[in-house]
């Protein structure tokens, strides 16, 4: 899937400025940037939630799904997990329950979870449900917008592992957005850096992290807190 010359304007303000980005099939593209860099706006444009100019080619734009940052706000509190997951399904009613169970098992949740309400789940479990709901629409591209930043460190690891296993098992393409460079580095094949609405650097993860060419990328890399810094 290729995002070509995508621009988003809010009045006189240009939030995303002429971004061209290729997401190879079966790859995870990590998008990093600071608040206000336009990365979340780009995500909302790609998923059709905000109007944009430019085009998205090489895929069905209706088969793009998104997982949101806050798992406490992205599930309807009055719907059971099963009903939420079933929402995007295009299967006959009879096959619905089996499909919900299959999706829950994909994100390593027990089938019994289907009857529960979001308030009974932990943040990590809710985020898994949100991923299962998105997978139900059989997406060609999954956009993950800061999906671990509202989670505690101890559960962040399991969600990142899930992201990687989905790519390996389903061959899912993903646009993985985060302000945390260490997290992006861990899950992504390709890293793209956004700054003030523009894409300033893009390349294979090891290259961008190992030998950044752009000055802004370098300052971002230097700022990452490191536990093992000498």
């Amino acid at each position: 899937m290729i995002i070509k010359n995508l621009t988003v304007r809010f009045g006189a303000f240009t939030a995303v400025d002429d971004v061209t980005l290729e997401i190879p099939a079966g790859a995870i593209v990590g998008l990093v940037g600071e608040s206000g860099s336009g990365k979340s706006t780009l995500a909302r444009a790609v998923t059709g939630l905000v109007p944009y100019t430019g085009e998205i080619t090489g895929g069905d734009p209706r088969r793009i799904q998104m997982v949101f940052q806050d798992p406490y706000a992205s599930l309807d509190p009055r719907m059971t997990v099963g009903a939420s997951v079933a929402e995007g399904l295009r299967v006959p009613r009879a096959a619905r329950q089996a499909e919900v169970e299959r999706l829950l098992s994909l994100v390593s949740l027990p089938a019994s979870m289907a009857g529960r309400y979001p308030r009974e789940l932990s943040g990590g479990q809710r985020q898994r449900v949100a991923v299962a709901r998105a997978l139900g629409a059989r997406p060609e591209l999954l956009v993950a917008d800061e999906i671990t930043s509202a989670l505690d460190v101890s559960v962040q690891g399991s969600v990142l592992n899930l992201v990687r296993s989905l790519r390996e098992e389903l061959g899912l393409s993903m646009l993985f957005i985060s302000h945390n460079l260490a997290v992006v580095r861990y899950v992504s094949d390709v890293v793209a850096v956004m700054h003030r609405g523009r894409l300033v650097e893009m390349g294979a993860t090891e290259e961008v992290v190992g030998s950044p060419r752009n000055g802004y990328t370098r300052s971002l890399l230097e700022a990452v807190p490191r536990l093992r810094r000498a």
């Binding site: 399991s158 260490a182 580095r185 490191r226 536990l227």
Partner: peptide, 18 residues
């Protein structure tokens, strides 16, 4: 400490989680 990915984490291994 183990579940926190940093800039030196081995990308070929799954992260530790609790």
């Amino acid at each position: 400490v183990a579940s926190l990915p940093d800039m030196d984490t081995d990308r070929s291994l799954p992260l530790a989680s609790i």
